[in-house]
Amino acid sequence: MSAYNFAFLDEQTKRMIRRAILKAVAIPGYQVPFGSREMPLSYGWGTGGVQVTASVIGPDDVLKVIDQGADDTTNAVSIRQFFVRTTGVRTTTQTDEASLIQTRHRIPETPLAADQIVVFQVPIPEPLRWLEPRETETRTMHALEEYGAMWVRLYEDITRHGHVETAYDYPVVVNGRYLMRPSPIPKFDNPKLDRCPALLLFGAGREKRIYAVPPHTTVRSLDFEDHPFTVEAWDRPCALCGASGVFLDEIIVDDKGGRMFVCSDTDYCARRRQACDAETP
C-alpha cells in the first residue's frame, strides 16, 4: 500500500472532509453535505465512517474498530486491516486505550473520556426520510425547525401500540435544536450520547453527509412527558461475565430453541472475566 497516501485519502480530500467536520461541530446535529469519495469498501459498509476516520487519524493514534460491539466481526476486522495497511497505527481492543474508535451499531459500555473520538457509521442520516422522501423538503424542515411530522409519527405509535415503535436509530434532539439520527445504535445506547465527554462524529458515505455532537452537548431522545423514553432490559445477566445493565446478544445454542445472553461488547465482557479470574485464587 506504499503507493497510497497515509490513510489512503489524499491530503486535499482530508482537508475537505475536516472542513465539513468543523462545520458539523459548529452546528451540533446538523447534516453537512460533503464530497464523499469512492473508497475501496462498498457503499453501505462504512465508507462514511472510514472517510471521517481517515481524515482525523494521525500516526500517534490508537485505533479500535467494532461492529455490533465486537472487535472481531468480519467487517470490523476488514476495516481495521484497512487502516493498519494504510497508516501502520497501533490498534487495540480495549476501549479505554483507544484514542479513536470507529463503530457500527453500538457505543462501548466502558464510559468514554474527554480525549477520545468516536466515529459512527451511518446508513441513512436523515431522521425525516421515512416521513418525507424529498431532500428539498427535509432541508427546509430542518432549517425552519418544522418537526411536526416527526411528532405525529410518535403520537401514532403510542396510539396504535402504546409505545414508540422505534427500537434503534431512535431520533434525538441535539443541543435543543436539530433533530438527528444517532445511527442504528439500539435505543439502549442513546443515553450515552447525552453530554458525553468525547467527540462524536457521524459519517454517511453513500448519502454524503457528516454530522457531529461536540463534547458535553445535550442529546435528548424524543418522547412525551406522559410516555417517557425507556431502554431495553433483560431478565438475566450476561452468561459469561455476570454483568447486568449492559446490552446483551441473544445466542441460540441448540435446535430446541435454547438460548443464552452474552455481552455484545466483547472487550467489556473479556475484561470483566479477566478481573474475575484474577480474583479467584
Binding site: 462498498s42 455490533q68 439500539p186 441473544e250
Partner: peptide, 17 residues
C-alpha cells in the same frame, strides 16, 4: 449495490432491540 448488499452485514444488535 453497496447498500442493497450491506444487508448481509451483521444486524443482530438492532434485531435484538
Amino acid at each position: 449495490s453497496g447498500f442493497v448488499q450491506h444487508l448481509k452485514l451483521p444486524h443482530h444488535v438492532d434485531f435484538q432491540s
